[in-house]
Design a protein around this nucleic acid. Structure first.
Lengths: 247, 247
DNA sequence: TGAATAGTGTCTTTCAGACAATATGCC
DNA sequence: GGCATATTGTCTGAAAGACACTATTCA
């Protein structure tokens, strides 16, 4: 204890020496002149949905070197005046024509050698979209795009297998302490729909009674005065987010 | 449902068209020629410790434009062949001469305009170090360095106040479901030491009995056959990580 | 009326949190 | 012996998990 740099008691003081305006100008020039080798920065987007009771991810087929013939997470360069999240949303819209959905930064991958062309640092986002918004085929500037269950992935380019592992792991974690799961459903849904989303992400079956008990006890759902008929059996009640919980 | 790109059933197929070798070569040339404006990439490290019962962060004083005279999170450029984490560890060692401590990536900040000089994308790491390892004064290539309680910060450069907010929030979250708190203690410690770390990070007092009960019930601690004398009162028992839990 | 899914309650265990008295070592 | 901190247990409420039968609608 007490062997660190400066005593904390002086926390309110100002730093000692400061540039004069001339020094500041000189330092700015030095900065601009410093020819640091700049890596390429890309943003990739892991686009996820739940279809057929499974968590699926949208991948694009690579037609060019390197890793031609393999599947990859869609992504691209960040524009000079574009925020990272804006770049991620642009990529998402290019692939799916979908806007205004949940998107969140996941992690940044930047090991040298992960791209054989040059040093590339990739900021990865993940997006959750509802299967029923997927009216439009993925726009494929990469030539070909397809959905894959995240538990049965094809060979992937770059370090993308690791990225998807990490995405899934993070999603499972977030499911427990956020309402992230609702991002994968339309505005009105049955409790069975919601349970299917949870089961798809957690990759294991859940007890129906305990699940309903837990979800309803949070008080964030309200019953819609309607039901969904889906075959020769009792229709299920529809729910939606509590207007108070919408934020 | 079922309106997405390609049917999942075909997940095992190969992508259709692939470059010929000539096309691949051409495409590589296109790639190299594409004069994308590359942003600068820096790595900043939030260096944290617990001193005097408070969570404190190491900041450096800026002497140059912009934000001269304000305090900032230490950081620097990433070397061309250096991984992001290696860059973070290098920065940490430059500031504290400390190596081999817990370090983890936090988030990447890249809004245009966050640095008035040029487009800068900053990958932020945070490091947890034990106060008793701080024998050596921070090497200050930025001129001046000092510890500040994270709850009483001075005016900060760039978007660094936001970064520290986020760091603290993440640390509080991780404390609950990881053993991250132990990173701030030496190999042998008293239960009161550990409680002090938790209280510093959570910024609130904890009940002694409940805390000890919870920590001991995990079974990751084992008693050391020794105690720490610290005044005219009963000495406290020392504990350490269970050898099984070391991993 | 049969098929298929919707909907419901109890018990047990675990965990978190509130709460105060005794034990021990040092001076 | 007095001081200062270490150490310890009970009760209560909340939440999680195991477990199986009845209800409803449609074809």
């Amino acid at each position: 204890m007490g062997t660190g740099a400066e005593p904390t008691q002086e926390a309110a003081r100002e730093p000692g020496r400061v540039d004069s305006p001339e020094e500041a100008e000189a330092s700015r020039k030095r900065y601009d002149a410093s020819a640091y080798e700049r890596p390429s920065v890309t943003v990739d987007v892991v686009i996820l949905t739940v279809r057929n009771g499974r968590l699926e991810v949208l991948l694009v087929a690579r037609r060019h070197w390197p890793f031609e013939g393999m599947w990859a997470i869609p992504g691209g360069f960040v524009g000079p005046k574009e925020s990272l999240e804006a770049a991620a949303r642009r990529e998402l819209e290019e692939e799916t024509s979908v806007r205004d959905v949940f998107i969140e930064q996941l992690y940044t991958f930047g090991d040298p050698g992960r791209d054989p062309r040059t040093r590339v640092i990739t900021v990865v986002y993940y997006a959750l979209i509802r299967a029923d918004t997927l009216r439009i085929r993925a726009a494929d500037d990469a030539g070909d795009a397809a959905w894959f269950p995240i538990s049965e992935l094809p060979p992937l380019a770059f370090d993308h297998a690791r990225i998807l592992d990490y995405t899934w792991q993070r999603l499972r974690g977030k499911l427990e302490y956020t309402t992230i799961g609702y991002q994968l459903l339309s505005r009105e849904f049955t409790l069975r729909d919601l349970q299917a989303v949870y089961e798809a992400i957690l990759n294991r079956p859940l007890d129906k009674r305990n699940f309903r008990k837990k979800v309803l006890s949070t008080g964030i759902l309200e019953r819609v005065d309607d039901s969904r008929k889906a075959g020769p059996h009792r229709p299920a009640a529809l729910y939606r987010f509590n207007s108070a919980a919408e934020q």
